[in-house]
Design a protein around this nucleic acid. Sequence first.
DNA 1: GCGGGCGGTTCCGGTGAGTGAAACGATGGC
DNA 2: GCCATCGTTTCACTCACCGGAACCGCCCGC
Lengths: 258, 258
Amino acid sequence: MSGNVSRSGATVTSRALALIGAFDARHRRLSLSQLAERAELPVPTAHRLVGELVAWGALSRTSAGKYVVGRRLWDVGLLAPVNTGLRQLASPYLHDLYGATLATVHLAVRDGDKVLYLDRLSGHASVPVVSTIGSRLPMHATGVGKVLLAHAPPAVQAEVLAHLTRITPYTINQPGTLRRQLARVRKDDYATTVEEMSLGACSVAVPIRAKADVVASLGIVVPTLRKDRARLVAAMQVAARGIGRALLDPSTSVDHFH
Amino acid sequence: MSGNVSRSGATVTSRALALIGAFDARHRRLSLSQLAERAELPVPTAHRLVGELVAWGALSRTSAGKYVVGRRLWDVGLLAPVNTGLRQLASPYLHDLYGATLATVHLAVRDGDKVLYLDRLSGHASVPVVSTIGSRLPMHATGVGKVLLAHAPPAVQAEVLAHLTRITPYTINQPGTLRRQLARVRKDDYATTVEEMSLGACSVAVPIRAKADVVASLGIVVPTLRKDRARLVAAMQVAARGIGRALLDPSTSVDHFH
DNA sequence: GCGGGCGGTTCCGGTGAGTGAAACGATGGC
DNA sequence: GCCATCGTTTCACTCACCGGAACCGCCCGC
């Protein structure tokens, strides 16, 4: 292909993917020109490729002429192991926990040096939080993050401890303090945060284990930790162990992993 | 491009998309050969394209050598208006309803002549159901389906009424009976099913309106309708109206629609 | 151990699908 | 009514893609 000055070395496929990748949480609806710019493509090329993507259903065009991610891409995305595996298996346990507490419930895994939220349940009675399904947040400021960090490889821990950004006045940004907390998390088998990610929100989180490995974390967000911390931790550990057992159950042939 | 006998008329983009589209609910993990076959591509071509898709994160390869949908595609899919719009806005209301009933809660829209499930909450205390998020079921055998069908364009109604497949012995497959039920749904403003989709499961559903238009449906699955049907319907209509109001609220700039 | 079948991977000559500057059209703001 | 901006169409050039053929590595049956 190519033919014009085409000084890129990019394949058609990579260009099409670049167009899809032009969308992110901060850019959900893009005009053709914006798409072309973000994908670093000439406008006519973008136009042609986008046409094909729309025809297939990967993108769709709003009445206003902007482009958005299409329904079909959502469909296919739901087939990813991140969604079909751990998440679906854990879902009933999360709902049980939500039903019992009416607080925001989180399911998260580690993705590099971030926490990736696989699921989130939140009603009107729950404390408002910033996370959404699919979002990635720093590990050191969230309950689930601390649990996953406490059981992460030393290299990851070192990396995270070296870059402790402050999000609220209560965010822990002293490596020593955090290191001591992580030891505590391993000892107690649960982690907490107090307004470290957003003001007015505290959290408790426990590890989910498959055999001995910590593969995920279960968290809950509450307005205060002062009351029934023990009750919460107990309920969460029951749920976490239930999920861990279900993970190993061969009858629920889960797409390993996430 | 092309060059060899290449008797297809297919563009590179369409081939790449065909590979992505080769995955569906019944085919979540595919070998290279299976992928090539399902996408109707020669194996070497599939191999090359799949390599690019994996590099980008659209697909990924399991340790067993099979291919699955990648995390990045899941990420992008979550940005689709089906997920970010109605679903996220309705989510707290669904959770409130779940918290109050502990029954399976559904949010669905019409997609052609099927019901498309946008969200589903279900704990261990809930009746087991077949639907999953993203799945499409026939309209005539589900509560949310009946609601959406009752307010669908006449052409769609005619189409559906002409093809009433029987799923359980209780599934309604007489057009006249269903037509009368739909009139009843419009009058009462809620629909019910009794073991029409799966044995042991009954459901109640109400419409969600933006202005006068029915844009979605809220449903609940219970073991029996005999008790507190009135209380359920009332709670659901409150939630549905809350969602409808939120839909029109310009401050929650929802990606119209779905 | 050995042969044969089966997936996956690499090679490579030929060529038409894809490229993007340029020109044209459609909006809309002032 | 004029200009600016964004979207769309055109078209000659060419190189990135194509896929048959050959190769590799593994497992299974004998």
